[in-house]
Structure formats: structure tokens, C-alpha cells
């Protein structure tokens, strides 16, 4: 049997809200080490990679590897039936064709149970190579979300330029052009508010805002986001999930026609 109990159930709610517009169906790979998911969007331009380690659950039980194919829109609808402070348990019997979701109120006086039919998903697993990035930018996730939203009024793509001074986002379109420049923080009260640029070499890349906007829906998961860039390789946008794992998005670079 597979059973994973997540005391902070709202993490799962935020996760599924963050990916449901990008990916329709996904295979949850359940292993003794934890839960993972890898899926591309339908146009094969971006990839979602999720990891939730077993030690982030309490308890976590996985006797053998299981693949749970789940429609994320259905899952999102079901998760809306839980409260933000509910404890959420995911359970799957060995010979079952469904995943069971249990929502438990903090005082355990309310228990709801939903049985979700599993779906068969033909999912190709891609191998993500280890990459030494030219630039790694860390910033508040709310700031990332705001910049992506602001740039969308100008055009459908954004150029992100990283230098030792900071990072500059710029867009131009028919109505005009604009940019937002973030300087590296010198002194901040909280590390979560800092903007840092870890630079091997200056880099400037252009990406479709539509996808960055979808990625930025993960902002409620984590106070900070990390953007990793190298010339001619996919952008990595990473949100850490508390102390238990991460949600990563990869986006192929735009190419000059």
C-alpha cells in the first residue's frame, strides 16, 4: 500500500494550483524515497519537475513503487473541498485503480474522503542533465510574479539580462517598451527579500511570457524563487517546497528565426 500523510495539506493545494494550467494529466511516481512527478506541457516547450521527499510526510509508507496517473483538473477540484489547515493523506491500495484523498481537520473532528479514478498516461521520461549555469538569480517570488505580469502589458516575450550589477527584464511590443531592473541587495532585513545574482558570466536570454506567467503561479509555495540561466539551454525556475523538496519548471529558450 501507498500512504502519504501531509500535515501541511495546503502545500499540495498550492502545488496543484501551480501546475494544473500547464499540465492536464500527470503520473505521480511513488517510491520509498518520496513522491515525484515529471510532465511536459502539451506543446513540449516546458517541463514541470516535482519532488517531495518522504521525510516531509508524517507518516509515509510505500511498500513498492507505484505510478498514480491523475487528471490534475479533477485533483484541483477535489482539493478545493479541503480547508487550508487540513491534513491531507493520499492513499492507494496495491491492486486498486484509484487514489484516495483524505482531508482531516486539525482537531480530527471532520474527515472527508474522495476516491479518484486513476488514468493511464503515456509519459516519456526525460533525463535532465546537471548544468553549470552562467547566472543564478534569487529573488522574492512575489517580485517575479509582479515583473512577469507587468511585462505582459507590453509584449509576449521578455529579455532577461544578468550582469554583476543585477538583473534586467525588458519587453517591447506595438504599444511601446519597458524594463524593470533589480539591483543586487546590499543589506536586507530578511534573506527572503534579497535579490542575489551568482554570476559566472553575463548572459541575456529571451523567453515567452506566457510560460513564465504560468510558472509564477507557484509563488504562494515559497517566498523566494531561483532563476538559472545559460546561453542556449533551458531556463530553470525553481520554487523550494518548505524543507521537503522542490517544484522546478524548465523552459526552452527562444531561438532567432
Amino acid at each position: 500500500m501507498f500512504e502519504a500523510r501531509l500535515p501541511q495539506g495546503q502545500i499540495l493545494k498550492k502545488l496543484i494550483e501551480a501546475v494544473r494550467e500547464l499540465v492536464t494529466d500527470a503520473n505521480f511516481e511513488c517510491k520509498p524515497s518520496g513522491l515525484s512527478l515529471q510532465a511536459m506541457d502539451s506543446s513540449h516547450v516546458s517541463l514541470v519537475s516535482l519532488l517531495m521527499r518522504a521525510d516531509g510526510f508524517d507518516p509515509y509508507q510505500c511498500d513498492r513503487n507505484r505510478t498514480l496517473g491523475i487528471n490534475l483538473r479533477t485533483l484541483a477540484s477535489v482539493l478545493k473541498c479541503s480547508s487550508n489547515d487540513d491534513i491531507i493523506t493520499i492513499r492507494a491500495e496495491d491492486d486498486g485503480d484509484s487514489a484516495i484523498l483524505i482531508f482531516e481537520s486539525p482537531s480530527s473532528d471532520r474527515l472527508s474522503e474522495f476516491d479518484l479514478k486513476l488514468v493511464d498516461i503515456d509519459n516519456e521520461q526525460l533525463v535532465i542533465p546537471d548544468t553549470q549555469y552562467d547566472a543564478v538569480v534569487r529573488m522574492p517570488s512575489a517580485e517575479f510574479q509582479r515583473i512577469v505580469r507587468d511585462m505582459q502589458i507590453l509584449g509576449d516575450s521578455v529579455t532577461i539580462a544578468c550582469s554583476k550589477d543585477g538583473v534586467k527584464f525588458s519587453a517591447n511590443g506595438e504599444i511601446g517598451s519597458g524594463s524593470v531592473r533589480l539591483k543586487q541587495s546590499s543589506a536586507v532585513d530578511s534573506e527572503d527579500d534579497a535579490v542575489t545574482v551568482d554570476l559566472q558570466q553575463a548572459v541575456s536570454l529571451t523567453f515567452a511570457l506566457r510560460y513564465l506567467s504560468l510558472f509564477s503561479k507557484a509563488a504562494p509555495l515559497s517566498p523566494t524563487v531561483t532563476l538559472s540561466f545559460s546561453k542556449d539551454v533551458p531556463l530553470l525556475v525553481e520554487f523550494r517546497i518548505a524543507d521537503m523538496g522542490h517544484l522546478r519548471f524548465y523552459l526552452a529558450p527562444k531561438i532567432d528565426e
Binding site: 511536459m40 506543446s43 513540449h44 516547450v45 516546458s46 517541463l47 516519456e124 521520461q125 526525460l126 533525463v127 535532465i128 542533465p129 516575450s157 529571451t206 515567452a208 539551454v233 533551458p234 524548465y250 523552459l251 526552452a252 529558450p253 527562444k254 531561438i255 532567432d256 528565426e257
Partner: peptide, 14 residues
Amino acid sequence: QWLQAQLQPFFPDE
């Protein structure tokens, strides 16, 4: 003009 590249050439199949 920009073209959005596909992801697969960067990440080979398992």
C-alpha cells in the same frame, strides 16, 4: 521574429 524551441533536444529520452 522569435521561434519558441522545443524542450526535447535539450533533454534526451531516458
